[in-house]
Amino acid sequence: MPEDLKDQNSGKKGLTALLEEVREEVKVLKEKAAEDVKTLKDPEKTQLYKSIFRVKHDDKPRSRALGVLSNVFLHLHPAKINRDAVAYNYTWGMGGITFYLFIVLTFTGALLMFYYHPSKVQAFRDILYLEHDVPFGKLLRNMHRWAAHLMIITVWLHMFRVFLTGSYKKPREFNWAVGVILMLLTMLLSFTGYLLPDDQLGFWAVTVGTNMARATPLLGHEGPFGAQLGMTPYNDVRFGLLGGSIVDSNALLRSYIWHCIAIPLIAATFMAVHFWRVRKDGGISGPSPVMLESEIKEERKF
């Protein structure tokens, strides 16, 4: 009995102790919750934020620099830039806008690919389907087309600006050449896309365009010295471009593959080089201090 009592007593004691314990724990929990709420008010201190962004978001120079350098999308930029270069009047923003349009075109283009079959039977019907039945299909196609046209304009204006600011001069000579190739690729992208709706406009534009290839010197059957080298409509450079002697289903497929896969990949590669070289050649070219005629150094002769 006494043992039982003892047990009972201890049991009673245990119950109150348990209650005490629970109260203690609730208190601790409350404190923790309060702490959590406090840290949630300052999300930059959470593990989640730190794991993703690493760097504090404040206006300390170090944080600002690291915010750019430690972000994969922003790290093409330097941490700091010429104070006068951010004004619109120097660069006109044309290079950046061109790149942005390339992204827009990749996005809308990928969406268009969901609705398009590169075959003579389907292609034109797919455009009609896209224009009349696909939700926002017309908007999608319009955006792809106008962004492509706008991109050509911005590429030309970018080149115009780079020329007028003399930015192709030492040490940026090679990057200008890369830029010229990118301009060519932009126009070829636009041109290969022209045939894809398989309508009269694209068909005849591509017919006119590729007919010029007949006249390629040496490699075209109507070009100078082509016939002498054994070129016919069935083995010359135009045949290679079209996959046939006329613009037909093979030409449509080839145009599709060049447009959606090959040229975008080539262009992306050249773009990577172009942006890389902008940084490696010393960043944006100016506005730099003017140089005077009296300061021209005589070139070293070898």
């Binding site: 600011t165 003399g166 192709y168 001069k169 940026r172 200008w176 100016g286 730099s288 021209i296």
Partner: peptide, 19 residues
């Protein structure tokens, strides 16, 4: 010709500013 421009222009002035 466009690609050759930087290698043909021997004028060192006007690099990085409008003039």
């Amino acid at each position: 010709g466009l690609m050759a421009i930087p290698y043909l222009d021997a004028n060192p002035l006007g690099n990085g500013y409008y003039t």
